[in-house]
Design a protein around this nucleic acid. Structure first.
Length: 239
DNA sequence: ACATTAACGCCTC
DNA sequence: GAGGCGTTAATGT
């Protein structure tokens, strides 16, 4: 068990069990994990707070310990954003910062209360030199992530908005489903703006399609949550 | 089909 | 009361 000082004044703690969840560390022994906690800086974020900003100059590798966050590419002009990925606990991000000059145009914002650790590039390089297989596993992680995002881009180009929305909802309900009396709740707080940014549509179009789905009895909505009632109908729309 | 714009009420801070 | 959010309608490509 290691306790570390966070960016602010609060003390956050993390144990080896948390680190073992990251597949880069799955073969690590106790002392190796100990050395990781020594260079891992923990920080807590509230919903809506930025974890990584586009103009951040320092290269870091981030480890999502708790809570989910949206990773998006932002337009330099107007404030448009396209959400590329939703980062979950046990996953890493910021990998591209090592390959590029900066983590260009990429922003990560907490969707709920998050605890995130980060390791500086020099510290991580030392870690990789001591454990060469970390690099191999990192490669695998990056590859898998890339393929997921490629598949989503395909959908964005060739499908219309209701179809994209249906696909998104099916994908989310698969990943975040919580069974409730009211139906299958998607256990993720998303605004309609977020949903729009996930499927490359406008907030207005999302509102219209969402209301269409609701009127048809396929879904129900409460505040920032969606409940799915008719998966089959959504699948038909997603075809 | 979809974006854009504008306008309005609602809710949260 | 300001700004974010959800909704609707008109208009443009």
């Amino acid at each position: 068990m290691g306790a570390l000082q966070s960016g602010s004044n609060e003390r956050l703690s993390i144990n080896f069990w948390h680190l073992k969840k990251f597949n880069v560390f799955e073969t690590f022994e106790r002392d190796e994990l100990e050395s990781v906690t020594k260079v891992l800086h923990l920080q807590e974020f509230k919903r809506g707070e930025p974890i990584h900003l586009p103009d951040q100059t320092e290269r870091r590798l981030y480890f999502s310990i708790r809570g989910r966050a949206k990773l998006s590419r932002v337009d330099d002009g107007g404030g448009k954003e396209l959400i590329l990925y939703i980062v979950k606990p046990g996953e890493m991000f910021g990998l591209l910062a090592f390959a590029r000059e900066q983590y260009l145009d990429t922003r990560v914002v907490a969707l709920e209360k998050c605890i995130v650790g980060h390791i500086s590039e020099p510290d991580f390089n030392v870690l990789m030199q001591k454990n060469p297989d970390v690099g191999l596993r990192l490669n695998k992680v990056v590859g898998k992530r890339l393929i997921k995002i490629e598949h989503r881009l395909e959908e964005l180009l060739f499908r219309d908005v209701p179809c994209r929305l249906a696909r998104l909802l099916l994908r989310l309900v698969d990943e975040y489903e919580v069974e409730l009396p009211c139906g299958s709740k998607i256990d993720l707080k998303l605004t309609q703006q977020d949903i729009a940014n996930l499927i490359g549509a406008t907030r207005e179009m999302v509102s219209l399609s969402l209301n269409d789905f609701k009127r048809s009895g396929w879904i129900a909505m409460h505040r920032h949550h969606v409940c799915v009632h008719d998966r089959q109908a959504l699948k038909k729309m997603a075809a």
